[in-house]
C-alpha cells in the first residue's frame, strides 16, 4: 500500500492507496506517525483507493482516533468503498469516525 500526505488550510489529508493487509500495516504503523504528530489538527483520511483493510489496519486507525481525542483534533474519513465500509460497520468502528 502507498501512503501520501497533503497539507493545506490547517488540515492534513492522508491518502491510502492499495491493500492495507497485515504486512502493509507494519509499514503503515511508521508512515502514520506524521498524522499522530498532527493529531491536534483536522485530519482527513481519503480511502478512495483503499481496496482492502484487515484488523491490523483498523487497530492503527483506532490508535490515530484516540490520539486526536487526546490532542483535541478530529478525523474525517472520505470516499470509502463499500467493501471497506462494511468492515467499519461490522466492527462498530463506523460510529467512532466521521464519514463523508
Amino acid at each position: 500500500m502507498n501512503f501520501s500526505v497533503k497539507e493545506g488550510d490547517g488540515t492534513l489529508t492522508g491518502v491510502l492507496d492499495g491493500r492495507l493487509d497485515t504486512a502493509a500495516a507494519q509499514e503503515f504503523a511508521k508512515d502514520i506517525q506524521v498524522m499522530m504528530d498532527n493529531a491536534d489538527k483536522h485530519l482527513i483520511l481519503d480511502l478512495e483507493k483503499l481496496t482492502f483493510i484487515s484488523s491490523s489496519g483498523l487497530r492503527l486507525l483506532l490508535a490515530l482516533r484516540k490520539e486526536t481525542m487526546a490532542k483535541g483534533g478530529d478525523i474525517t474519513i472520505t470516499n470509502v468503498l463499500p467493501e471497506v465500509k462494511q468492515v467499519f460497520t461490522i466492527t462498530g468502528f463506523y460510529s467512532l469516525f466521521q464519514f463523508q
Binding site: S54, S55, L58, R59, L62, A63, R65, K66, M69, V87, I90, T91, G92, L96
Partner: peptide, 24 residues
C-alpha cells in the same frame, strides 16, 4: 470478547480478527 458498542476511548485492540471471522 469484542464489544462493538464501546466508545473510541473504551475500545481495545484484541479479538478483532476472530470477531470478523465469526461475523463473516
Amino acid at each position: 470478547e469484542v464489544d462493538t458498542t464501546l466508545s473510541a476511548e473504551e475500545r481495545g485492540i484484541g479479538g478483532l480478527g476472530i470477531f470478523l471471522i465469526k461475523q463473516m
